[in-house]
């Protein structure tokens, strides 16, 4: 192990190397005062360096230890077990759930994009409600964080969707316990307001705040352990305006994507990013494509594109390591995201 891999400041690293301490083993036997003398630094500083170094070499020892060949790794078999036991967040549209393998997966970052008015925000709100479905009904019984960068979150709409969700659960309840006599006892005591109370809403007004909130999420989620879904609506908005320096943008977006993936893994979260579309010239014609450019398209684990297919709204899995590319129709109704009904024109009574 080289000294240069230690997470210490550049000047300290420089001093270490120029005094001949190039490997970790050379630091293992030296005393703090000796080091302080050699490097012409204070003893406190020397002590800090040694602490960092010993922490690092401890890691090395466990690396070569019994249980794991590489520290932090997990066998593919364990991963499979874990994956099979994990509960997914339903989208409330069974066709869509089918192609997604049961819904939106936890521990993954899923990007959803589409033209204006296709239903991205609707899906975001739906997921923020559905993550709260109690475990008795096959849900996660979690809470949701909704990060709104565009101001498009409509609390009235969330209320409607929550109401419909409760109705569905009641229906399911009476269906399941039709025969048993205790159906009265199993009434749902949930109110739409309880659902709204479990959505933590952040309103973000600049890209700096967006980075800040993503950094802060780690602490927030560790304080609110039952948060199971994070919806960012949209990831794009602030990064599309007023950005001169495209290299900086790519770097910031890349950093954000990494942090989000880490969050998803550590806290077992489903992270849903909503993205806008833009036009792109390729193969001789203009195509629609999700915004933020090609390097961003690598950032998410799954990518779902919502689009119009004739008169139907459809979702297309554009990228996923585990699911095959497929499309499914869905509908946005007064009750939220649902299966596509085939009857084409319904007169709605107000």
């Amino acid at each position: 192990m080289e000294v240069s891999s230690l997470p210490i400041s550049a000047s300290q690293r420089g001093k270490l190397i120029s005094s001949g301490y190039t490997s970790l083993s050379s630091l293992s036997s030296v005393s703090p005062s000796q080091l302080a003398q050699d490097l012409k630094i204070s003893e406190n500083e020397a002590l800090e360096i040694l602490k960092v170094a010993s922490r690092r070499s401890e890691l090395d020892i466990t690396d070569n230890g019994a249980c794991a060949i590489v520290n932090g790794a997990q066998t593919a078999w364990d991963m499979l077990q874990e994956e099979e036991s994990s509960v997914r967040i339903t989208t409330s549209c069974s066709d869509l759930d089918d192609i997604l393998g049961g819904g939106i997966n936890c521990k993954e970052v899923t990007e959803v994009g589409g033209v204006p008015g296709i239903g991205k925000t609707q899906l975001g709100i739906q997921l923020a409600i559905n993550v709260q479905i109690p475990a008795d009904y096959g849900g996660l019984e979690g809470k949701a964080v909704y990060i709104d960068t565009e101001g498009s979150f409509m609390v009235e709409r969330a209320f409607q969707i929550a109401e419909a969700c409760i109705e569905d659960m009641q229906e399911y309840n009476s269906f399941l316990r039709k025969d048993s006599k205790d159906s009265q006892a199993c009434q749902i005591r949930k109110d739409p307001k309880d659902f709204l109370d479990n959505i933590f809403y952040f309103r973000i007004c600049s890209y700096t705040e967006q980075i800040a909130v993503i950094n802060y999420l780690e602490k927030f989620v560790s304080e609110h352990k039952d948060v199971k879904a994070v919806v960012i609506d949209s990831i794009t908005f602030h990064f599309r305006q007023d950005f001169e320096d495209m290299a900086l943008r790519t770097r910031l977006l890349g950093g954000m994507a990494l942090k989000l993936m880490k969050l998803a893994k550590t806290f077992n979260l489903a992270i849903i990013l909503l993205n806008q579309v833009t036009t792109k010239y390729s193969e001789g014609s203009f195509q629609l494509t999700l915004a933020l450019g090609d390097s961003w398209s690598h950032a998410c684990t799954n990518r779902i594109i919502l689009y119009w297919n004739g008169n139907e709204r459809c979702a297309h899995i554009d990228k996923s390591p585990s699911m095959r590319s497929a499309s499914a129709p869905y509908a946005v109704t007064g009750r939220g995201i649902r299966n596509c009904a085939s009857n084409s024109k319904r007169v709605k009574m107000m």
Binding site: A158, A212, N215, Y216
Partner: peptide, 18 residues
């Protein structure tokens, strides 16, 4: 982490918003 926490706007629950 500290800077992020301070500059992150406070959250509200959707219920309090309503």
């Amino acid at each position: 982490a500290h800077i992020s926490e301070v500059s992150c706007p406070p959250y509200q629950t959707a219920l309090s918003l309503l």
